[in-house]
């Protein structure tokens, strides 16, 4: 069992809440719990109530979407020092993706209802939490847009590349000149041109 003081220290050390005011941190601690997930366990599932969000302390969480009849597609991974889950802050408070621990994951979870209540009662806390969440959400949106661009182009599945029918140099039929002879001719021509 992690003591509240230790939880406060962990929260303060995590990049997401780093440097937060002591009073506000104490409010956060009241909604926080230390959690651990084994590989394959879900932190949250699509469609379920988004009850919590997580400060990942160790391990990697896969954010994925279930595709019927196929392997789930991982659309993002969240690692140490990052945050998993923001549906707790957006009505109707339902998770929009699955979040699965890839290996052992240690995280500090925050009870969404508890925190929303405190944020409504204390605008300073509300502002501080949103001030940290909004850039993270904007970053994720921007990353998702970049991913959609499919920047790296084709590959993956062994597609048959349409190969031009080229005779190997030096074995070309229908010409009297070898590549070396053609190069010599080009050199002669280049001298003439200059």
């Amino acid at each position: 069992m992690v003591k509240p003081d230790d939880l406060g220290k962990i929260i303060d050390e995590h990049p997401f809440f780093q440097g937060i005011d002591d009073t506000l941190r104490a409010l956060l601690v009241g909604c926080a719990a230390n959690e651990r997930y084994e590989a394959g366990q879900f932190l949250f599932r699509e469609g379920q109530e988004a009850a919590k969000f997580y400060l990942v302390r160790a391990g990697t969480v896969a954010v994925e979407i279930d595709v019927p009849g196929k392997q789930p597609i991982v659309i993002e991974t969240i690692g140490e020092g990052e945050v998993a889950g923001w549906s707790w802050i957006v009505e109707p408070y339902r998770s929009t993706f699955d979040a699965r621990a890839i290996g052992l994951v240690r995280a500090i979870s925050f009870d969404g209802k508890c925190l929303r209540k405190k944020m409504a009662a204390d605008p300073a806390l509300g502002y501080e939490v949103l001030r940290r969440f909004v850039p993270m959400m904007a970053h994720r949106l921007s990353s998702a847009r970049l991913q959609m661009l499919d920047l790296y182009g084709p590959s993956a599945k062994p597609e048959k590349v349409k190969k031009a029918k080229v005779k190997a140099a030096g074995k070309t039929k229908g010409t009297n000149r070898s590549p070396a002879a053609r190069l010599a001719k080009a050199a002669k021509k280049s001298k003439k041109d200059s």
Partner: peptide
């Protein structure tokens, strides 16, 4: 897909 245990993202 789920077989990959590395990073996903840009």
């Amino acid at each position: 897909t789920g077989k990959w245990s590395g990073n996903v993202g840009v």
